Amino acid sequence: TQSIHIEKSDTAADTYGFSLSSVEEDGIRRLYVNSVKETGLASKKGLKAGDEILEINNRAADALNSSMLKDFLSQPSLGLLVRT
């Protein structure tokens, strides 16, 4: 696993530069990185398409609903625990 911390203040970007997809496997919801913008903040921090997001801001990914995800992604900083 890899811990990634991203700050939007690093650039004038209003997004982190990646998209997520939610997949249900064996009754457990998993979050995967769908795509990463080549010039985006997430790419600079090493996030890659296909990575599994285990935690966002110290909250287990399978416990997050879509409104919580939207809220986290609109925050000025983001902490991710990722399995590559």
Rank of each mutant, 00 (worst) to 15 (best):
T1R: 06
T1A: 08
Q2M: 14
S3F: 15
S3D: 11
S3K: 14
S3H: 15
S3Y: 15
I4A: 01
I4G: 03
I4D: 01
I4Q: 07
H5Y: 14
H5F: 15
H5N: 07
H5S: 07
I6F: 07
I6A: 02
I6W: 02
I6S: 02
E7A: 12
E7G: 03
E7R: 13
K8R: 08
S9Y: 06
S9Q: 10
D10Q: 09
T11P: 13
A12E: 14
A12F: 12
A12P: 10
A13D: 15
D14R: 06
D14A: 09
T15E: 14
T15K: 08
Y16H: 04
Y16W: 14
Y16F: 13
Y16A: 02
Y16M: 02
Y16T: 02
G17D: 06
G17I: 04
F18V: 11
F18E: 08
S19Q: 12
S19D: 14
S19H: 09
S21K: 15
S21C: 09
S21R: 14
S21L: 10
S22Y: 15
S22N: 09
S22G: 07
V23N: 08
E24A: 07
E24N: 11
E24F: 12
E25I: 13
E25S: 10
E25H: 12
E25G: 08
D26N: 14
D26H: 08
D26C: 10
G27P: 00
G27M: 01
G27R: 02
I28A: 10
I28G: 08
I28D: 06
I28L: 09
R29A: 08
R29I: 08
R29G: 05
R30W: 06
R30H: 10
L31T: 07
L31A: 01
L31W: 15
Y32V: 09
Y32F: 12
Y32I: 07
V33G: 02
N34Q: 12
N34I: 11
S35T: 11
S35F: 08
V36H: 09
V36N: 00
V36R: 01
K37T: 13
K37M: 12
E38D: 13
E38N: 06
E38C: 06
T39L: 09
T39K: 12
T39N: 14
T39S: 13
T39E: 12
G40W: 00
G40F: 09
G40T: 03
L41F: 01
L41C: 09
L41V: 09
L41D: 05
A42G: 05
S43Q: 12
K44F: 04
K44D: 05
K45A: 05
K45Q: 10
L47V: 07
L47N: 00
L47K: 03
L47Q: 00
K48Q: 09
K48C: 08
K48L: 04
A49G: 06
A49H: 07
A49W: 05
A49Q: 11
G50C: 02
G50Y: 04
G50H: 02
D51S: 06
D51M: 15
D51Q: 11
E52H: 03
L54F: 00
L54V: 08
L54H: 01
E55A: 09
E55Q: 07
E55G: 02
I56C: 03
I56P: 02
N57M: 01
N57T: 00
N58L: 01
N58S: 09
N58V: 05
R59V: 15
R59I: 15
R59M: 14
R59T: 15
A60D: 06
A60Q: 14
A61C: 08
A61I: 09
D62R: 11
D62Q: 11
D62F: 06
A63E: 14
L64R: 00
L64P: 03
S66L: 06
S66V: 04
S66M: 14
S67G: 09
M68N: 08
M68L: 08
M68D: 11
M68P: 01
M68E: 14
L69A: 04
L69V: 14
K70H: 14
K70W: 06
K70V: 10
K70T: 12
D71V: 09
D71A: 11
D71K: 13
D71Y: 10
D71P: 03
F72W: 07
F72A: 14
L73I: 04
L73F: 15
L73K: 07
L73N: 05
Q75V: 05
Q75F: 05
Q75D: 07
Q75Y: 08
P76N: 08
P76Q: 12
S77M: 04
S77W: 03
L78I: 15
L78V: 11
G79L: 15
G79E: 15
G79S: 14
G79T: 15
G79H: 13
L80V: 04
L80C: 04
L80T: 03
L80P: 03
L80F: 05
L81V: 11
V82T: 13
V82Y: 04
R83Q: 08
R83W: 03
T84G: 08
